[in-house]
Amino acid sequence: MFEAILVMALGAIVLGAALGYAAVRFRVEGDPLVEKIDAILPQTQCGQCGFPGCKPYAQAIAKGEADINCCPPGGDEGIHKLADLLGREFKSLSAEHGIEKPKSVAVIDEQRCIGCTLCIQACPVDAIVGAAKQMHTIVADQCTGCELCLPPCPVDCISMQPIGESVETWKWKYPVFKIAPAQREAA
């Protein structure tokens, strides 16, 4: 009886020590779940979800504080991926956070720009170049299409232009064939 208790206690101590050591030695820095969610989010940094960027939204999803259907730029595909990752049910995009739009870039009308730098301060990815009282311009390759530069502009000289399809970005379509009724030979 006493021996059995001793053996069990000894086992518990040894395993406890091993687990304790492993917890310290193989500690995971950061939250891997947040990283995984962040990798799915489109990195538009638009704040339409109500959080100041994609990472904070990812953190909120990981903590269960936010739903998975608050990201309009990610669209239905993004929600599907999040649902798969988190083992939740798919939900359609929440209407209060906006609608999915075609990918666009901001364009500054350079004739009307007064050089106030307000859009530069608003841009989350530093994609606008310019200085005070100098014309500003947008680096189209780095623009995420977040639309955050639109409200601060005092002269409304920024517009969003959808990115069209070019020969380089064209994609082969899913092979779908029209179903046509078979032509019958006249008897």
Partner: peptide, 14 residues
């Protein structure tokens, strides 16, 4: 790739 660049630039801005 575009998303990775945007993430990096956003983090750098912060």
């Amino acid at each position: 790739e575009a998303a990775d660049v945007a993430r990096e630039r956003y983090e750098f801005r912060l």
